[in-house]
């Protein structure tokens, strides 16, 4: 690990301003992903700004009947919150399907959104990776691709976003609240928060330099039956090969998003509209334009079946 200075930020705006002035700085909250990457020298910050003291650890009701989740709310606390369990079950389920108890106790809401891909080539510093070194090339393309993306990929990157929580946030139409270094705040719809890789796979989110997430806001509950179905190589403590977040209403309408298949949570409006027509129509629309390899083509079949399982689970 490279040496770094350590400081505790006092206000969100102060933290953002400090980070914007120093391109070698990183915010640290739970640290469960960042420290792992620092040990491998994939991340090499020279300055760590600890944001844990910023009092962004509350879950509060919003004026329009939704919930405002502080950036520092731990995954365990968010999953266990009574309001979340009752009105946003898909979010609770997605959180509980991810990581281990130890990690969920540390990992934060904002950090979960910002976690990096688990592409093995991103982790292997001996191999070229466009995320680590822009322009270096992608070792996954033409390599072992069983776990990689099948939707929204580019010639530069076929990595997936590893978060379960983000898939639920996407199906709930959450918004990401931030503060910029000049103190200006904004709200970014979750649909626009994570980016597709394109030619700049190292630019993973809509955040600008120094911009700090302060909260994630959920709109008022939409009701319906919630389910999160995750398919992985072992029954617990593994990343998704494919996951499905869904909210179904009695009249057959609803929403659906996929995890484990793209550089961001995958949701297609037309697929939502097709829910009353059944799984076949939905998966055709969701998976349209998929680009697979011989090793990850199974994800298309798996996604369709996982969708069926999630819908059955929601109705049960």
């Amino acid at each position: 690990m490279k040496a770094f200075t350590y400081e505790r930020a006092r206000t969100p705006a102060e933290a953002a301003s400090a980070a914007a002035k120093d391109p070698t700085a990183r915010f640290i909250a739970g640290g469960t992903n960042l420290l792992d990457l620092m040990k491998l020298e994939i991340e090499t910050p020279r300055r760590l700004i600890d944001v844990n003291g910023l009092r962004l650890d509350k879950i509060e009701a919003t004026k329009d009947g939704g919930l405002r989740i502080g950036a520092l709310v731990r995954n365990t606390d968010l999953a266990a919150d009574k309001r979340v369990r009752k009105d946003y079950g898909v979010l609770s389920r997605a959180l509980l399907a991810g990581a281990s108890g130890q990690l969920r106790n540390k990992a934060t809401t904002a950090g979960n959104l910002l976690q990096r891909t688990r592409c093995p080539y991103f982790y292997d510093t001996n191999m070229p990776c466009n995320k680590r070194t822009p322009g270096a090339g992608c070792s996954a393309i033409g390599g072992f691709t069983r776990s990689h993306a099948v939707l929204g990929t580019s010639e530069a990157c076929i990595a997936t976003h590893p978060s379960d929580m983000a898939v639920a946030m996407r199906v709930l139409d959450a918004s990401v609240e931030t503060v910029k270094p000049d103190g200006v705040t904004r709200s970014i719809p979750i649909a626009d928060f994570h980016r597709l890789p394109g030619n700049t796979p190292h630019v993973e989110t809509a955040l600008t330099p120094g911009e700090l997430i302060t909260a994630v806001t959920l709109p008022k509950p939409v009701g319906g039956m919630h389910a999160y179905h995750k398919v992985r190589d072992r029954a617990s403590y593994a990343f998704a090969l494919v996951s499905v977040a869904t909210i179904l209403h009695k009249d057959g309408s609803g929403r659906v998003a996929l995890g484990g298949v793209a550089h961001k949570p995958w949701r297609v409006e037309a697929a939502d509209s097709a829910l009353p027509q059944g799984i076949k129509s939905v998966s055709e629309l969701l998976l349209a334009g998929a680009k697979t390899t011989s090793q990850n083509a199974f994800k298309l079949t798996l996604a369709e079946r996982a969708l069926g399982a999630a819908m059955a689970q929601a109705r049960s």
């Binding site: 365990t76 990690l103 540390k106």
Partner: peptide
């Protein structure tokens, strides 16, 4: 009161 992985946490924090 909470279990964590002490390998993924900085002592100074």
């Amino acid at each position: 009161g909470r279990r964590i992985n002490s390998c993924l946490s900085l002592a100074v924090m």
